[in-house]
Design a protein around this nucleic acid. Sequence first.
RNA 1: GCGUCGAUGGUCUAGCGGUAUGACUUGGGCCUUCCAAGCCCACAGCCCGGGUUCGAAUCCCGGUCGACGCACCA
Length: 526
Amino acid sequence: MMTAGADIAENVLELARRRGFIWHSYEIYGGVAGFYDYGPLGTLLKRNIENAFRNLYVIDEGFYEIETPNISPKDVFAASHHLECFADEVVRCERCGSFFKRDDISKCECGGTLVFAGSFNLMFRTHIGVQTTAAGSRGEAYLRPETAQGIFVDFPRLLKFNRDKLPFGIIQIGKAFRNEISPRQSLIRLREFTLAEAEIFVEPSQKNCHPRFDEVRDRMLRLLPASSSDNEVSEKSHSASTSSESASATNTAQSSTAEHSSAEEISISVGEAVEKGIISHQYLGYYIAKTHEFLTSIGIPAHRLRFRQHRKDEMAHYASDCWDAEFLSMKYGWIEIVGIADRGDYDLSAHASHSNQNMSVYISDTAKKTRKKVIPHVIEPSYGIDRIIYAVLECAYHEENVGKDIRRVLKLKKHIAPITAAVLPLLNREELKNKAKEVFNILRSNNIFAVYDESGSIGRRYRRQDEIGTPFCITIDHETLENSTVTVRYRDTMDQIRIHIDEILNFLRREAVGDECACERDEMND
RNA sequence: GCGUCGAUGGUCUAGCGGUAUGACUUGGGCCUUCCAAGCCCACAGCCCGGGUUCGAAUCCCGGUCGACGCACCA
């Protein structure tokens, strides 16, 4: 008998805690809300997912990765408007307890009087150098709330690095910090979290000409477009002069409670969606499709993914269009795991004017013998790695009835599993243990991350590996001593095959790459 | 941030005024020729601070953390 979906999700969190994937931070001091540690296995999983992101964006897309500081001086966020858009003075109605942003309202609807309730700044403020006074002083600095600004401020350097040509993309994987008012739901809302972001700089007139669009044209997606009534913006052109108005759009967001939009979900190919103007151009469509490819490749089944377009009033201050990849969690419902935004020239223009530096690019048209100066537009896929890890864990977790027991198994894709293989002597006998250690040494000297385990019955050891998602168990038995063959047990099916020791390396390399995962079938709460 | 409820070994749990129950896990041993078997041994716990009391895991207050609802989520 399977437990209900939410209980399953509860169980996967319990497993993740017990087996060293994720731990609430600072537990010995009572814990601090919004902070989580990745334990030994969680860190391996996270690295593997980050590397999958790199494989897609660095190796396949040819983008370079950079690394910029977590701490930025005030200037950066003054320019980007995060300072004004992330900080709110909040008032509270004494009678009904409702909160309002201070500037929005002078009297509560219920007639109660409003009192100052505090200043909520989503950015963590800190100080560079000797501390004088707090806000407004010289060394005032902030922990970045997104990694993107580090890329934008390096734009002149990056443009030179790319020999003055567009388009090009840059990625960054790193920590971002937001002092959420009430972080909740484990990895879903953190105060310190990992973002993997790509910033693609493109000539504005070329946004509908992605050179590789044909490769993704036929990919089918579930889309939830903002309905046109809430959203006359779909091609709001984003010049620097329109930037201030998008900031004020956020001020009204609080009045319209949740009800997302009346738009219908549609299933459509990327090519068609772009042609019909549902997705406003090829660049956005291409990275939506790439994101879909990425998420399914790490084990999130397509039927639990959709892309939802932001309404105008929920868009971030810098965005002119935005689609979220949403994951259908058994516990939390639809949650955003990736945002793919068209930031227009908002950021580069903002930094150009605040820094007095040139952020434009000269585009030559050799046919017409003309040259023009443009500020590139930015397309930004922004991946919330922690939420993706939660999604991957929830999708991978299965409870199966085996005899009287429940087998708990993480059917992680092989290339992201923390441990590739376990080497196990069938019995606790010297000759088997010695042989098993030999095999183990072969693996580790060939850069395959394996573990050796001789403790407990063989069944128990298999189950241990099942719980942490190890795809293969290699067992050494008496036959190994006779003919140098071992058994390889598949995690997902528990089937075993027998292969020669000399073939183990090739077997693992082949299997770990090929990967048609057995976890496509997926029981939602039906 | 507000409201309701809660917090006991690594995990789950019993106890609800006399310093703690059981299971699982883990470690060691015996046994064992493939799926959490069995037997023996061992490790390990009352969220933090204050108060009431002869005595607090238990009652009271404050805090922290968590779940849910509201608000927030740029």
